[in-house]
Every structure is written in structure tokens, then in C-alpha cells.
């Protein structure tokens, strides 16, 4: 019985993703395109929001994945700190730019949606503000990875930052709520069928969300592979430098 930790071996990870990645990529492309085309072309206008309701197929999935990407980084950081699997730390690093991009999409679509609905591009609404803060967290996290040269030190420091940052991100969410009551509508998705959006919007939205999830997985797998190779490159370069030092 193979343990899940086997995939934490970089070689095994590369070999496995070599097979899996094309399938995930294809599936992500199909689902994302299907969800967006369904949402854009084949859904009716909302009686209140008109055609702007079509923005939901970008806004909600990207916002969802912006938070989930951070959660994934948090879990990967904890695994790195506890079990010292390099793949885990590198996956966290690989996910950050993807999460930051999703945050940016959520912010941009939110602003564009807010303009006709609320009459302003930007309102310091709690949800928008929280996402802006989340974006700053992503920037800091990526900047720290960039700044520290030794990959193991960088992995450790960013993991600590990710954990502390998560606590402060949650704190900020509540602080911002306290600071300004917002214009933003409640949750679009809910298990309580009475609350969430109507079925005609709901099913294409689910497909879009699946598309964004798969896109995230595909990108993180691809980028983790890159990070594994970059780390190997770093190790080889360090060995060459040491070899030259011994020879000269």
C-alpha cells in the first residue's frame, strides 16, 4: 500500500505529474471554457442587475480560489515545517502568484461590477477591502521568497510568515467588518437553497468554479515542477562553485 507521502519525493512527483498534468490541463481548459461560454452566452439577464449578472461567472470563482489558494499555501507550509518535504514548500511557493492573480481578477471584476450597481468603481466595502489586504499579503509572501537566497531558509521563513499572516488576515477580516458596514451582497452560494442565486445562474456558476479549481491545480502542478527543477539547478550551481573553489 503506497503512502501518500511517496508523492512528496521530488522524483516521484515529477514522474507522476508528467502523466497527470496533460489530463488536468485539458480538463481545466474544457471546463473553464464551457462554464464561461455557458455563463456568457446562454444565461438570461437578471431582472435587477441586467446583463452585469454575467460577471458572476468570473467574480465568484476567482474570489473563492483566491482564498482557497492561501489556505492551500497554509497547509503546504505546515506540512513543510512538520515533515520537511521539499515538494510541499515549493508547491506553496508555486501557488502564491496564481492566488495573487485570482485575487486581482476578483478585485477587478468587483470594481467593474460595482460601477454600474453601486455607482462607484471602488467602495471601501468590507469584502473588497479584505481582498485588497489579501492581495498585500500575497505580495509580501512572494517578496520574501524572492529576497532570501537560500531555498531552505526561504521556505522556513515564508512558512512562518504564512502562518502568522493567516491569523492576521482573519483578524483583518473581522476588523474591517467592524470598521465599515458594506454594500456587498451576501454569499452567492449556500447549501440553503432559499438563499443562493437562482438555478439558471447556479449551474453554469458551478461549472465555472470547477474550471477555476482545475485551472488552479494545473497551474500549481506546472509551477511546482518548475520550482523543483529550479531548486535542483540551484544545488548544481552551488556544487559547481564549491568544485571550482576546491580546484582553484
Amino acid at each position: 500500500m503506497a503512502s501518500i507521502w511517496e508523492y512528496a519525493n521530488p522524483r516521484k512527483f515529477l514522474a507522476t505529474t508528467d502523466v497527470v498534468l496533460p489530463w488536468v490541463t485539458a480538463l481545466a481548459a474544457i471546463t473553464l471554457v464551457a462554464g464561461l461560454i455557458w455563463g456568457f452566452f446562454f444565461t438570461p439577464d437578471d431582472y435587477k442587475q441586467g446583463s452585469t449578472v454575467k460577471i458572476i461567472y468570473l467574480h465568484v470563482p476567482s474570489a473563492l480560489m483566491a482564498i482557497n489558494a492561501w489556505l492551500m499555501m497554509l497547509v503546504a507550509s505546515l506540512i513543510w515545517l512538520v515533515r520537511r518535504h521539499h515538494v510541499s514548500a515549493l508547491a506553496a511557493r508555486a501557488a502564491a502568484p496564481v492566488g495573487a492573480t485570482f485575487t486581482l481578477i476578483a478585485l477587478a471584476t468587483g470594481a467593474i461590477w460595482g460601477q454600474p450597481m453601486w455607482g462607484t468603481w471602488w467602495a471601501w466595502d468590507p469584502r473588497l477591502t479584505s481582498f485588497l489586504i489579501l492581495f498585500l499579503f500575497y505580495l509580501g509572501y512572494m517578496a520574501l521568497w524572492q529576497a532570501v537566497e537560500n531555498p531552505d531558509t526561504a521556505a522556513d521563513l515564508t512558512s512562518v510568515l504564512c502562518i502568522v499572516g493567516s491569523v492576521f488576515a482573519v483578524l483583518s477580516r473581522y476588523a474591517v467588518n467592524f470598521w465599515n458596514q458594506g454594500l456587498h451582497q451576501g454569499a452567492s452560494l449556500s447549501l440553503d437553497r432559499e438563499e443562493h442565486v437562482a438555478d439558471v445562474f447556479y449551474y453554469p456558476l458551478l461549472v465555472s468554479i470547477a474550471g477555476f479549481v482545475l485551472l488552479f491545480i494545473a497551474l500549481v502542478l506546472l509551477r511546482t515542477r518548475t520550482e523543483i527543477r529550479a531548486r535542483r539547478l540551484y544545488a548544481l550551481a552551488a556544487r559547481e562553485r564549491m568544485g571550482q573553489g576546491a580546484a582553484g
Binding site: 460577471i55 481578477i105 477587478a108
Partner: peptide, 16 residues
């Protein structure tokens, strides 16, 4: 037919 919100919807899709 996107109506009067065409610009908003198209720019949201464009940017994303």
C-alpha cells in the same frame, strides 16, 4: 444583447 451594461460585462471578461 448586453444592453446598457455591455461595456462593464465585456471589460470584466476582457480583464479576467
Amino acid at each position: 444583447d448586453l444592453g446598457k451594461y455591455a461595456l462593464a460585462v465585456l471589460s470584466a471578461y476582457g480583464v479576467s
